[in-house]
Amino acid sequence: MKKWIFLILAIGLVAGLAIGYYMYNEPLEGMDSQEAEITISAKDLYASFDTDEANANATFLGKVVEVSGEIQTISDTEEGQPSILLDAGGMMGGVICRLDQGITGSFSVGQNITFRGECTGKLMDVELARCVPVE
């Protein structure tokens, strides 16, 4: 009887350690498998930040956002992924979508597109990190 209890405890301990180890080392979850919390146009998203940044931060920061707009520029960084700027109708900035590692596809200026990514805030442009294109 004692042997059984010991065995069950040992299995529980090993399983617990394994789960803990897995959770600790878990990589970032890709945007492919995440649901958008907010769906918005590039124009509206930029306008929210432009009119009241603190309020927009409270609404969008860290959220998975699906944003649609027309591609204004594509900048190819030397190492890594392209960043795609969506037109927001403003003179000063737009919505910049930084593609996630391993995301490829053909993009062209003037194309209408939707990206899903995590909103990280606004510098000159409103920024979305780890973006994937949405069909």
């Binding site: 878990e26 990589p27 970032l28 860290g62 990280t120 510098l123 920024e127 990190a129 780890r130």
Partner: peptide
């Protein structure tokens, strides 16, 4: 220079969460 803190990408999800 300016940079967004949430734009730092970590390898581990938990690390990025604690950092932010």
């Amino acid at each position: 220079f300016a940079v967004l803190i949430k734009g730092f990408i970590f390898e581990k999800a938990l690390m990025q969460e604690h950092f932010n």
